[in-house]
Amino acid sequence: MKIREVFQASYAVEAKLLNAEKNFPPLKRPLAGYIESDNSFYGYHEGVALAAVIEIKEADKLTHIQSLVVDPVFFRKGIASKLLSFLFENFDSEVFTVETGAANDPAIKLYERFDFVQVKKWMTEFGIEKVAFEKKSD
Rank of each mutant, 00 (worst) to 15 (best):
K16S: 07
R76D: 14
T100S: 05
T63E: 11
G101D: 03
V6K: 05
G101I: 09
V70D: 01
Y34H: 13
K16D: 02
V48Q: 11
V119F: 06
F91D: 12
P30W: 05
S85K: 15
A107R: 02
L62M: 08
F91Q: 12
F96K: 03
D60T: 05
A103W: 01
T63P: 01
G43P: 15
D60R: 13
K109R: 13
E125P: 00
L110C: 02
K61I: 00
I3Q: 05
K22L: 14
N104G: 04
L83V: 13
V6D: 02
S81H: 09
K57H: 15
V53M: 11
E89C: 06
A103T: 05
N19S: 12
K130E: 15
I54D: 06
K120H: 14
E125D: 14
V131T: 10
D92K: 04
L87D: 05
D60G: 11
S93T: 10
E46P: 06
A102L: 04
D71T: 13
F74S: 00
E129C: 03
L87V: 07
N23V: 09
L50C: 05
T124F: 07
A103H: 03
E89H: 09
A32C: 01
A32E: 12
Y34P: 03
E89W: 03
K16I: 09
K2R: 08
E14I: 11
P72R: 00
S40Y: 13
G47K: 10
D105W: 02
E112N: 00
S81V: 00
I35M: 11
A102C: 06
P25Q: 07
T124K: 12
K121Y: 03
W122R: 12
F91Y: 15
F86N: 09
V117E: 14
A20F: 00
P106L: 08
L84S: 07
P26H: 04
E46I: 15
E46Q: 15
E14L: 06
E112M: 02
Y11F: 11
P72Q: 04
K2A: 04
L110P: 02
A49N: 14
V119G: 08
L31D: 14
G101A: 11
P25T: 05
H64V: 08
K2S: 05
L27T: 05
K57D: 15
F126W: 13
K16H: 01
A132E: 15
V95D: 08
R76S: 15
A132D: 02
V69F: 05
D105N: 12
F126I: 08
V69H: 06
P106F: 02
I35Q: 11
F88M: 07
S85I: 13
V13S: 01
I54G: 06
R4I: 04
G101C: 08
S10I: 01
I65M: 02
E14M: 01
L27N: 12
K82V: 09
Y111H: 02
E94R: 12
A80H: 05
K82H: 10
E89A: 07
F133S: 03
F126Q: 15
S37W: 10
Y44R: 06
A12S: 09
N90L: 03
D115E: 11
D60S: 08
N23I: 10
Y34E: 09
G33Y: 04
R29G: 01
G101T: 10
F91M: 08
S85T: 11
D105F: 02
L87A: 03
E36P: 00
D92Y: 03
I108Y: 02
A32I: 05
M1V: 03
K61Q: 04
R76N: 14
